[in-house]
Design a protein around this nucleic acid. Structure first.
Lengths: 121, 121
DNA sequence: GTCAAACTACGAGATACTTCGAACTACGAG
DNA sequence: CTCGTAGTTCGAAGTATCTCGTAGTTTGAC
């Protein structure tokens, strides 16, 4: 049940919010989950798009799917299918245009917090 | 059931997290609620401490109490009793020391978003 | 066509969040 | 002492969130 003339290389298409539909509250909420913050930090550290599975999170696959969907639906990441993999990328440009400096300050804050003593337990 | 020699001007004391106990995830979660974000923006705009009641939020008193407590318990605001009023202040210094630039970027982002077309409905 | 890999969809359980009203406490004014 | 103001506490209702396992789909490789 899909449009007959689908995309050439990629068939399944995923819905993303337009830049102007991204809400600050939703972004903050998305980043407030430890697992999702970890995902965002990993994507930022990688610099390029990453598949869902390379992150190796300590949660089940279905939970991983859930978190990536939350991140996509609130506008933090973009996702496209490449073959059997689903690649994820931070929407840096959109976030920077809407909320200048926000993502960087969150990433810096997360890094600093991770380096705080007793953070590894 | 309170220490006999209580504070002179203020009797009731409120628990606040120490600076090093403030967690990024908790702060982001606190700010992700529209009502609490509104409170934080008002406190930032005022610059000085404000009582709970001057904000005139479109919610009930008990809900207001709840939101202020969330903000205090996660380290975003400090609260002290002054007579019958409870004064609230942003913990700007603590937040800036832990998460440089974060609060300002959130406040700027919130202001910008509030000015976006069709934001008043 | 068959198979494995990667991801999704669905339902369910447990927990957490937001909101409220009603009854209560603390404080200052008179 | 009495009263009003400011805020709290205590359920409770409704909703949302996080997590999982199981079963399914899509894709590329053989």
């Amino acid at each position: 049940m899909q449009t007959p003339s689908a995309t050439a290389s990629t068939s399944r298409v995923l819905e993303h919010p337009a830049r102007e539909d991204i809400r600050l509250e939703s972004v903050l909420h998305a980043l407030s989950d430890p697992m999702r913050l970890l995902v965002v930090r990993s994507l930022a550290a990688a610099g390029t798009e990453q598949s869902c599975s390379v992150l190796d999170l300590p949660i089940s696959k279905s939970t991983t799917t859930h978190h990536f969907r939350v991140l996509r639906e609130c506008g933090v990441v973009s996702q496209i299918y490449r073959g059997t993999a689903k690649m994820n990328a931070l929407r840096r440009d959109d976030l920077e245009a809407l909320f200048p400096g926000l993502l960087d300050s969150v990433l810096t804050a997360a890094d600093r917090q991770a380096e705080r003593p007793g953070e590894d337990r």
